[in-house]
């Protein structure tokens, strides 16, 4: 009886592995998602921003709430080589790093900028990192998603 049960279980496990082996397994490595120039986006009345060139549209309400501000004139958005989105705006104290997922952006990191809030922030795409420049103060920060 036990032997029969063992055989049945082994068959089920073999079938399960077989089915898994037949499923999709293609993976492309070293994808470069880097956006060469940051996008400067103006939110609409519903705090939605839409980057037509790089095809992304989302609400910045939760970011504004996190920063404790009601509105901004424009936000700056750039995607690094690994595919993480970096978001900030004038008056922000942080840079938000998001990871793209199915119909959502998940906060991967929140980078606090030392000192006062950002005066005139701008992202530059660099080889291995994202450069954050505060043109008001001349300070630069080399950012990574890790």
């Amino acid at each position: 009886m036990l032997k029969q049960a063992t055989i049945t279980l082994s068959l089920c496990v073999a079938l399960l592995f077989g089915a898994a082996a037949c499923g999709p397994s293609l993976v492309i490595q070293n994808v470069d998602y880097s956006q060469p120039i940051e996008s400067v986006l103006t939110p609409d009345g519903d705090a939605m921003v839409h980057d037509q060139r790089f095809a992304i549209k989302f609400s910045i309400s939760s970011i504004l709430e996190e920063e404790g501000v009601s509105s901004v004139d424009e936000i700056r958005l750039i995607r690094n080589r690994a595919g993480y989105y970096f978001v900030t705006a004038e008056g922000f104290s942080n840079v938000y790093v998001f990871e793209a997922d199915e119909s959502e952006l998940k906060l991967a990191k929140k980078i606090e900028i030392s000192g006062d809030s950002l005066g005139q922030p701008a992202f530059n795409q660099r080889d291995t990192y994202i450069e954050l420049v505060d043109r008001a103060t001349g300070q630069t920060y080399n950012l990574d998603h890790n």
Partner: peptide
């Protein structure tokens, strides 16, 4: 630790920095 990781190569400069976008 966060600052050390994320601001790995942070630097300050008195020279006005340029924005590629600008």
């Amino acid at each position: 630790s966060l600052l050390a990781v994320f601001l790995l190569f942070a630097s300050t400069s008195v020279v006005a920095q340029q924005s590629d976008y600008q």
